[in-house]
């Protein structure tokens, strides 16, 4: 006799609290932001907002600053992601090989990750001060005698991006390192021992055993870092504010400026949706092409 399907409320009640949070704090804002992006949005309660369709999206494509912001965001991601991954891998392998003091070094490298973006951004603003009084300039000019004139760090777009990217890499290494370290510890020691007997050196072992076995982890870190890179905001906002002349603007700083400074909430919402679409597509492509079974 087949089981009669009986309705039971219990599982739904268990889901309910989480579901409510999801609906109220994730789904509702998501839908609402999309709706806002289709309007010339007025923030006053009761004010009538005009429906403009996709105008806010089209406006972005004709907006020079949007393209500058997109270029800077891509540049930031393209430089910080590989730099973080290579350095983090190096640190992870070195820390893993330490005979003692692993916890100490792991903690030291992780400290930048848990410090506040606000605090370190302000610190970096002082470090990269464009005058002679900035610590980096002082060091380069008076301790190392490498430069005769102070570098206009946060005053010119190029050097400013260098400062922003330096902060991003420095702060991000620890996170990737921790994940790489965890993956390193799952690699069976007998593989290394066997290859050692076969005469493989440490470099060959790294590229032939360690790296292939860590592939899923590397792909995971890559995807997460790319998402993080595209979402760069606080460091830029606090170090340059997108200046000079919007030339260090990133998508999120530009979105924030449009929405909260100029009250262009419709345009701001459209910008954030454009960013979301870009991230979604890139991540989808990464998952599709980079994920495959481990092969040694």
């Amino acid at each position: 006799m087949p089981h009669a399907r009986r309705f039971s409320a219990t599982p739904y009640l268990f889901i309910l609290p989480g579901m409510l949070f999801f609906l109220v704090f994730l789904l509702y804002p998501l839908v609402e932001a999309f709706r806002i992006s289709l309007y010339d949005w007025k923030i006053m309660p009761g004010a009538v907002s005009t429906f403009v369709g996709l105008d806010n999206y089209l406006r972005a494509f004709k907006d020079d600053v949007f393209w500058i912001a997109l270029r800077n965001t891509v540049l930031y991601t393209v430089v910080t992601v590989p730099a973080q991954m290579v350095l983090a891998m190096l640190v992870a392998v070195l820390v893993d090989a330490l005979p003692s003091g692993k916890v100490l070094y792991r903690t030291l490298y992780y400290i930048p990750v848990i410090t506040s973006w606000v605090v370190v951004s302000l610190l970096f603003r002082y470090l990269f001060d464009p005058s002679e009084a900035g610590l980096i300039n002082y060091f380069l000019m008076h301790s190392l005698h490498l430069i005769a004139q102070p570098i206009p760090w946060l005053r010119e777009p190029g050097p400013a991006m260098v400062a922003i990217i330096t902060l991003g890499v420095w702060k991000g290494i620890g996170w990737s390192m921790i994940i790489f370290l965890a993956a390193l510890q799952t690699i069976p020691a007998d593989l290394h021992e066997a290859s050692q007997i076969d005469g493989a050196g440490p470099v060959q072992r790294f590229f032939s055993i360690t790296l292939p076995l860590m592939r899923p982890t590397v792909v995971f870190v890559l995807i997460m870092l790319v998402i993080g890179g595209f979402n760069v905001f606080l460091s830029v906002y606090l170090m340059t504010g997108g200046n000079p002349l919007h030339r260090t603007e990133t998508i999120l700083t530009y979105m924030y400026n449009q929405a909260f400074n100029f009250l262009e909430f419709g345009y701001g919402a459209a910008l954030s949706y454009l960013l979301a679409i870009i991230i979604f597509v890139i991540s989808f492509v990464q998952i599709k092409f980079l994920r495959r079974p481990i092969e040694v």
């Binding site: 804002p29 998501l30 979402n231 929405a259 979301a276 979604f280």
Partner: peptide, 10 residues
């Protein structure tokens, strides 16, 4: 991440 981006604004 997708949600978070849109969320900041909304």
């Amino acid at each position: 991440a997708l949600v978070a981006t849109a969320l900041i604004l909304a």
